[in-house]
Design a protein around this nucleic acid. Sequence first.
DNA 1: TATGAATGAGTGTTCATTCAT
DNA 2: TATGAATGAACACTCATTCAT
Lengths: 205, 205, 205, 205
Amino acid sequence: MQREIRPLGRPRQDHQNKPTKTVILDVATQLFLDKGYQVVSMDDVAKECGVTKATVYYYYKTKADLFTDAMVQMMLRIKKRIFDILSTDKPLKDRLLEFAKAHLEATVDIDINGFMKEAKTSLSNEQLQQMKEAEDKMYEVLELALTAAMEKGEVPQGHPQLGAHAFVSLLTIGNYRDAGQKPIFPSIDEMTEQIVDFYWNGLGN
Amino acid sequence: MQREIRPLGRPRQDHQNKPTKTVILDVATQLFLDKGYQVVSMDDVAKECGVTKATVYYYYKTKADLFTDAMVQMMLRIKKRIFDILSTDKPLKDRLLEFAKAHLEATVDIDINGFMKEAKTSLSNEQLQQMKEAEDKMYEVLELALTAAMEKGEVPQGHPQLGAHAFVSLLTIGNYRDAGQKPIFPSIDEMTEQIVDFYWNGLGN
Amino acid sequence: MQREIRPLGRPRQDHQNKPTKTVILDVATQLFLDKGYQVVSMDDVAKECGVTKATVYYYYKTKADLFTDAMVQMMLRIKKRIFDILSTDKPLKDRLLEFAKAHLEATVDIDINGFMKEAKTSLSNEQLQQMKEAEDKMYEVLELALTAAMEKGEVPQGHPQLGAHAFVSLLTIGNYRDAGQKPIFPSIDEMTEQIVDFYWNGLGN
Amino acid sequence: MQREIRPLGRPRQDHQNKPTKTVILDVATQLFLDKGYQVVSMDDVAKECGVTKATVYYYYKTKADLFTDAMVQMMLRIKKRIFDILSTDKPLKDRLLEFAKAHLEATVDIDINGFMKEAKTSLSNEQLQQMKEAEDKMYEVLELALTAAMEKGEVPQGHPQLGAHAFVSLLTIGNYRDAGQKPIFPSIDEMTEQIVDFYWNGLGN
DNA sequence: TATGAATGAGTGTTCATTCAT
DNA sequence: TATGAATGAACACTCATTCAT
């Protein structure tokens, strides 16, 4: 009697209940984050979703459309996450720590710069615009939190937009691995603390 | 009498004198920096060099080889540039300003993170290793300068590796353009000053 | 107050009242005449009708069926038009002029030869047969008129079938445009007259 | 012992000696004439040539390019054939008979109208222009012969361009097959004679 | 040292068609 | 009567790579 064949590799998710379009978007987002726009083929997306390529095209007219949608949704999700964490009334530094930790814990390295670059060579102007707008909104919530903290005197007066970008760029340090695959700090906690400390100093505290 | 016809677009460089292999490497570097690994085809490289694809393959066994070589050379060049600038005995902050300005003035955005990511999905382990080593060497010269400054008391004691990565990551802020194509600061000088100030504070000064 | 937004391009017809099947057939005929069998997709037809592709398939089992039906209907319509015009008791040449003018005034170039060729490579034998029969009936009414005229002595004795085909083939001259987009004759009236004159001579008059 | 395997269907031509590009062009011409632009795939061409699709693309950048080249070459060939036949100093009617017979004997039906229509929806403007120019040149040689004959008084004065188009369009009658696959005339000789007679009358003789 | 020719394996995209509802 | 979802098979086109010369 033949037992069930266990397929190799990560078992295809069940995606239970979720409407196909959502499944596609989620899977695509994951793949694009993992490997970048060019490397992921529509077939890859389809296979990972357990549907055919034609089905993917039923929901997204082009690969660029799918990518744009995936990236925009992702950035909106991050924006919301930033917003939720920064909206509490704990001291700003605690909130930054909390967000940084959450971000660094996420396995995928969200290399927004890199995505914007791929976008620049592969998307239509309109799509690029959509991505930029989502990106900007992401930075805006950070800026707002910084502006508020500056007004409250919690942080020295300064350039909030610079502050927002500095924070995000410093977080990318967490993705670094040296030739021996080692990150700069052995634990995420220490990484978080050191980066946020550096940042906090940078703001002029 | 018909004058010389001026072809459209960027005129194909003459590449005079330089040995073919060097021409190929230089051209490839430029193209990879501009558009990324995946987007540049071996044909693109060949055409831009004024040779045939087969010639490119005569010098580089695979595209991945060419990319690895190009990236490694580039990082060694940057390392040298950092080294040269940081080796002078001006105050550290002045040296940082000088390097930052030089870097921000270069038109191409040298998105090392992005290149490492493309490398991860497309190169052999050995090639990846080569790139990582070149990357590490780049950071090392920065670390050394920081360590020296810390020992001299020019800068508070701290984590030099973090310092090195923080500097490089903050420089990426210069590449940002918002939805209206505007950078954060109107001039490179102001950008440089503000970023280095932020960084300087971050170091604990 | 915002007025109704006028969509771009040819306004989607309302197709009011007409039963869906008729709408589909009419729209399909128009599209096939305009662009040919291969180039028109079932989606094109559906969109232009304001229904879904599945609806088109509800009424026509295959694209080839739809095409066959469209072409047959069209040829029957032409046959009727020929019949109506040729049935009057004006002199034959006047009737020919009238029909030629009506035909040349229709914007679409009804390239029956071309349609028969597309049919040959894409339709089932049965469908091809249907089209040929409709085509033949079209020529027959012309033949009948010619035969009658020959019997009446209005035209020299000759080969009526040849006469019919010659007339139709000469009419295609009207579709010709040279490299500068110019037709052979500047006005439809002159075109008509010259073609019919040539034809009339050809018949032996 | 296994004997040579006889492949099914028409044996792949040997194309001996001919350079690949010529083979491709010849095969493509044949296929396009047989089935039309849309129906023939680049794979079809490649397979029939015994090469891979990539090889076809090595010589022709796009399918439209290949089609354009094929059609232009074909029309130039026809032009030459017309020229050669019409250049002799036999009476015009004899020359017309000779050309008509040669044309009607060729198995493929050269439906220039149909090709121009496919071209209109599928080629770039430049390509269309090339085709139109070749088409025009084809008609021109006919026109020249007619003009000369009119000047010599061999044929009544008339509109030579109309005469050229009328001749070509009347020749298409030879392609007609009725629902029972029968042509209008049982033999090519009779077909030729009758068509040329009709034409000769049409010219006003 | 350099190249022209050739290819295998994709890649994004389209489309006629089916089917459950 | 009408449709939304899904698909298989194709299609135009690309590209890294090889090889004989």
